[in-house]
Amino acid sequence: MKRLTSFKLGLREGVRLVAVTAVIYAAFIAFATGADTKAEDAKSADTKAADSKAADAKPAKKAGKKKLTGAELYAIHCNRCHAERYATEFTPGQWKTLMTHMRVRANLPAAQAKLILKYLQEDSGN
């Protein structure tokens, strides 16, 4: 009986935990999606100058205001877990294998992984 009571309490705590987490997640995703929608609206209202090459070349202060380059995605995704690996450290073929590994391990979106791979292969070693 004691065991059953203890189990029920644990289950209740678990359900409560999942519910709270789900609410927090929903709020965050709603906030994030809203922020992105606003950013895209702002972009469409901008003049063409906002999409100029100069703007592409410099990292934007607000990442949500334009499509990110491979270099920017590299800085966003890779440096948060490990120190920077230089493009010259691996060959183009090795980078392809490594990025497949990192796409799986770090759960990177396919399109972003491809941009990062292209960026690394451009200056890769021989």
């Binding site: 992105d36 759960n107 972003q112």
Partner: peptide, 17 residues
Amino acid sequence: LRGAIPVGQSGQMVTYS
């Protein structure tokens, strides 16, 4: 099964496993 769903174009994403 695992993967990622990008949200917008800012690098934001939702991941699952």
